[in-house]
Amino acid sequence: MPDMKLSAMRKGMRARIDGLPDGEMRSHFIRIGLMEGSVVACLERLPGGTLVLGFQHQEVALSGELAESIAISQV
């Protein structure tokens, strides 16, 4: 599916990251280990769109708004 956003992820889905927002947020994502090409799993999705993502033994939570700015493709 083209132009899919991370915010569209549902629990149990896996996706590859295609695009990150620019600037400091992007640098921060690279630091914690998320880049274009990284694969993430959606572990939980809370009402309101807050996501819990799993990758490389890590779990991070991010708000739906931020997920809106990240492009993915489902794997």
Partner: peptide
């Protein structure tokens, strides 16, 4: 605006 949540669990 509200700073987005990105937090390590």
């Amino acid at each position: 605006g509200i700073s987005p949540l990105l937090i390590d669990l």
